[in-house]
Amino acid sequence: MMDFGFGISRSSTVNLDSVALENFTRLQALEPDALKCISCGSCTATCPAGKFSGMSLRKVIHNLQRGREKEAVEMLRGCMLCGKCSMVCPRAINTRHLIMSIQKIYGEEAR
């Protein structure tokens, strides 16, 4: 292959056709409320870990639905399970329970 000094970069477009949602379907069965998230960001704004580790439950839920499972699980490592997010969630999602379920399905032990 010839080196021209530049390369072809892949499109950053997320192709929803090829996002594998098997794991998310399993999560949905355990946590139907996960789908109620409206990305308001309250959880992220209040998260004590977020300020230091980049942890954002909003992004975790969103990433899981777009097939970015690795990023989501990596991000969850910052969670201290303090439960502050469940206090602020306007859609009354049991966020701590949700986080545990995510770990069950996507976490290292699950692999």
Binding site: F4, G5, F6, I8, S9, R10, S11
Partner: peptide, 14 residues
């Protein structure tokens, strides 16, 4: 701009 050529060819490739 030579630094942008990868971007140029990526569009064509698409």
């Amino acid at each position: 701009v030579k630094a942008n050529r990868g971007y140029s060819i990526s569009n064509t490739h698409k």
